[in-house]
Amino acid sequence: MLINYYIFLSLALFCIGIVGVLTRRNAIIIFMCIELMLNAVNLLLVAFSKMHHLTAAAADPNAIAGTDAQIFVFFIMVVAAAEVSVGLAIIVMMYRNVHSTDVNFLNRLKH
C-alpha cells in the first residue's frame, strides 16, 4: 500500500477535527474534536513507522527500526487520557458556575 493513502486519510481526519473545533460551541464536542486530531496524528505515525521499517528490513531482516514511532503513539495515548481527565473536570466546574457548556460564556472568565 502506498504511503500517500495514509497521509491523505490522516490529513482529512485532522481537518475534520479542525472544522469541528471551529464550528461547534459545545465545550465537550470541541474536546472530542481534539481527540480526533490526536488520533489522526497517531495513525500517520504508525503508517510512517511501517514505511521506515520496510526500508530498514530490506537491508537487515532482523531490523527493529520503526518501533520507536509506535512507542511515541503509546505515549500520545497516555497524554491524551491524562488531558481528558483534567479537561472534563474543568468543564464540569464551568457547568457548575454558568449552567452551560457553551464556550461563548467563557469570554468573561467570571459570571
Partner: peptide, 13 residues
C-alpha cells in the same frame, strides 16, 4: 508519496 508502507507484514508491533 512514492514510498510504500508495509501492510499486513513485518513483525514490529
Amino acid at each position: 508519496l512514492k514510498q510504500q508502507a508495509q501492510v499486513n507484514e513485518g513483525y514490529i508491533g
